Deep mutational scan, measured.
Amino acid sequence: MTEYKLVVVGAGGVGKSALTIQLIQNHFVDEYDPTIEDSYRKQVVIDGETCLLDILDTAGQEEYSAMRDQYMRTGEGFLCVFAINNTKSFEDIHHYREQIKRVKDSEDVPMVLVGNKCDLPSRTVDTKQAQDLARSYGIPFIETSAKTRQGVDDAFYTLVREIRKHKEKMSKDGKKKKKKSKTKCVIM
């Protein structure tokens, strides 16, 4: 069974824990209790493949930012979460993405942009803004509501699919490099 290491990042209060708990335990946590770091595991079937999701729910508070490099190193894919009623959390996505790329030393890291709290009427981040940002990053965008469960499975499952595509691409690139290195030079 394939294991996928997913990391949920975003500013404090955007609903990272609520999304994760909704996926794992099928219930909505409405009281806000700032996370330092929590880890969850769940076995699911995605596109006919049974897999184990190892999900790291991270601290959004700035005082825990020193811990970010460590979990970013171990993560295979990242859910970059903002709240649709919090423009600052949307603007912060850029910083999370840049930090992930720096730590992973790669421009090509599996990510999904997630606009959470889409059940709320007080939207300050337009869907088109988020779609445009995701398009500019070359990553999928999904709106979710941890409260109603809308888009929750889709967000995590899409990230797994992005990781699969990335692994497939990397193995193809690896095979191309191996083929090239088999060419021999004969000096007579």
Rank of each mutant, 00 (worst) to 15 (best):
S17A: 00
R123V: 09
D126I: 05
A83L: 04
V103W: 15
E76Q: 09
L53C: 06
E3I: 03
I84P: 14
D173S: 13
R68F: 12
T50N: 13
D154A: 06
K169Q: 14
K128S: 06
V7I: 10
A83C: 12
S136W: 02
E91P: 02
Y4I: 13
V125L: 06
Y4P: 15
E49P: 12
C185R: 13
V45T: 13
L120F: 13
G10N: 01
Y96W: 13
Q131L: 06
G115W: 10
M188Q: 10
T20S: 09
L113Y: 06
D153G: 06
K169L: 07
D47F: 12
Y32G: 00
P34G: 01
V114W: 01
A155F: 15
L23M: 13
S65A: 07
L113M: 13
I55G: 00
G13A: 11
G75P: 07
E3L: 08
S17C: 00
M67F: 09
D132Y: 05
V14E: 15
Y71V: 10
D57E: 00
K184I: 03
K179V: 10
G12D: 08
H27K: 12
E49Q: 11
Y157H: 12
E162K: 10
V152T: 10
I36W: 03
K182I: 13
G10H: 01
D30V: 08
L79H: 01
K16D: 00
E62T: 08
T127Q: 06
S65M: 08
K42H: 12
L159P: 02
I24C: 05
V103R: 10
V160H: 04
D54P: 02
E91C: 04
F78R: 01
V109C: 08
G77E: 01
T158L: 10
K167G: 04
V9H: 14
T20W: 00
Y40P: 00
K104E: 03
D173T: 09
R123Q: 13
F82K: 00
Q25C: 15
V114E: 00
A66L: 06
L79Q: 03
A134F: 03
P34K: 04
I24W: 02
L56C: 10
L133K: 04
R123G: 12
D132W: 06
T124M: 07
T158N: 05
S106D: 13
D57M: 00
T58N: 01
G12M: 12
Y40Q: 00
P34M: 03
S181Y: 14
A134W: 04
